[in-house]
Nucleic acid binder design. Structure first.
Lengths: 196, 196, 196, 196
DNA sequence: AATGAATGAGGCTTCATTCAT
DNA sequence: TATGAATGAAGCCTCATTCAT
């Protein structure tokens, strides 16, 4: 097996871990399987990441980062309603575009993170929430109360999380696409009342 | 050691399993830990449930059954709006009342079930959905299209699932109680538009 | 399950044990499987036979007894050559008639007995040998040296054991039937030289 | 702990397995006991052989190989009678020289192999038989019918198997040495008639 | 007398990790 | 540096046996 520099290996291993977690769950994601998927010797995994937990943390960070990117990419720089709406849409579409297994891996990892000592699960939520808030705040200008911003953020996350659970369970893309419409309708209705 | 009827033992084990799954995740829920939590020798677990998987299935059924009960208990036998609203409220309140660990165990088990051969995860969703549908249908009478009923059911489940994810992540009851209000507001707004 | 007197159960259990040993080997013959095969509760096995070893000893005795019967049934009360020949034939035919699994169980049990404290394996051989010897001795009258009698007995057992090993391995009855002819031919040739 | 090449480790384990099987039977040959006998940690056994069954297969192959060597070593390259005779003698002597436990392990494993899916038991017999046949065929030249060759092979195996059973049962070397003589006498008598 | 319930001991296997090179 | 080899701990499960009725 060709010797490969550690930095590159790290990347391979993180990607491999995501794939394995998606297909076999967090508990099915053994070091051996991840190493195999990454085409790397088992010992390399521990050479690159002292511990399985550290590898998972890296995976977690990668997912968090991706999530933030999705949010930022979907900032339409419009008014509050348009911006909020686009953000929700963007997240739903992203879920739909990626493999359902990807969403599955994310969820698995959040459960996993919940049980780790320093609760990075909360961190990722907070971080995502901060991104959402800052985007919305800019769109809202001065007129909207911070509590309202927060609430909008909460509803976006609630709707998208709820959407994902169903999508993961049924893994039926055309059905999920329709449901995405419904979800956006729900959001619209509420926003109209809220910002009336 | 005192003689304990098998049925009771089975019950103890199911309860123990729920507790362990909630606190340590499905993969942390080893037979040893479950037996210990149930205050039973490890071999007893396999006497009562031939297999760990069978125990988990029993746990799964227990949770499913409980979920159905909650739905039925919250049928107010009113008109469609009142009935739908009460059902959503009932589920949210139930989540809030029970230990967050209970909801956590449910979520963990759904992920687990997803990876089992015969996908009981889908079954539990379908079953719950059928209960919701039949309650809503009775409340709606003849005037409402079945598709609308289905959509209302979908929104109830999406909102409650989304609510749970946040509740599990932060495990902050007073915050969740406020969020429950928001969730119901969202539902009301949409229902008003939908059934206008 | 109907309560059945212990004496009858003992018989059932011994028969069940033989069947299970034949089909799954000594190590596959667990108490549970034997009890199941005998249609008896597991605890009954230990009620009838304090120990699995004691049950196996009973099985062993049953097989030994059967072996002795076969030898005696095939005593043609003729001269030495005819008697010896008939005995070998009788044993070979018996093996051929019974299920190959029966022979298999016998062999399994002999290996098993070999490893028990008081070596009943030797006992069964000695016993069988004594039966053979006494039959041959009567047929031989006074003229034949005891050593010769012993040697004939040894050759009978060697040939029949060797025959069985092949029969067990290939479990091909028509092939084994031909081989039985060959075995008898071998015996005849040697007897002719030996008793010339 | 000193680094030991994997190949050597495998060898140690195979040897240990043979010893344990010989002394405690196939079913008494637990992974723990084999590892202990090999002075290796239990996990090492599974590092070298993914499975207990694979280890046993390796043991089986070792025994088969050894058996073939014995046959080939005892090819005297003489005429048919001399060659056949020498082969039988060689096998008997080999059994006598080696520990009775070695023969015991062989027999145990053949029973074991019989119960495996792909019946390697038949394979080893066929293989051994082919070696015998080819040696005999060369010695016989053109004049002897193939059926006769086969028959001689069968008698050799029957006599040696029968011999072994007694040898294993009594484990009395001096007695077995005498019996070996008798066995060869039997073979000689039959060969004389057969090839007359 | 007869049996459902229960269990300690031990079975095979896999895990994350470390060691020696 | 990078990795094949090795391993202690723990996984699930089954065994023969005993207990309480």
């Amino acid at each position: 097996m060709a010797r490969v520099p550690a930095a590159e290996r790290r990347d391979d291993l993180v990607n491999a871990a995501i794939r394995v977690i998606a297909s076999r769950g967090v508990d099915g994601a053994t070091t051996r399987r991840i190493a195999e998927q990454a085409n790397a010797p088992l010992a390399t995994l521990h050479y690159c990441f002292q511990t399985k937990e550290l590898l998972f943390t890296a995976v977690f960070e990668r997912l968090t980062e991706r999530y933030r990117e999705v949010l930022i990419e979907n900032d339409v720089h419009g008014d509050l309603v348009a911006t909020a709406r686009a953000m929700l849409r963007g997240v739903l579409d992203w879920y739909l575009e990626s493999d359902p297994e990807f969403a599955s891996a994310s969820f698995e990892l959040i459960s996993w993170a919940q049980r780790q000592e320093d609760h990075p699960a909360v961190t990722v939520y907070n971080e995502a929430f901060n991104v959402v808030r800052s985007i919305l705040a800019r769109a809202a200008g001065q007129d909207v109360a911070p509590e309202t911003i927060d609430q909008i953020g909460y509803v976006i996350s609630t709707l998208s999380d709820g959407f994902v659970v169903n999508w993961l369970t049924y893994a039926d893309r055309s059905r999920a696409a329709q449901q995405a419409e419904t979800v956006v309708d729900v959001f619209d209705a509420w926003l109209a009342v809220k910002l009336a």
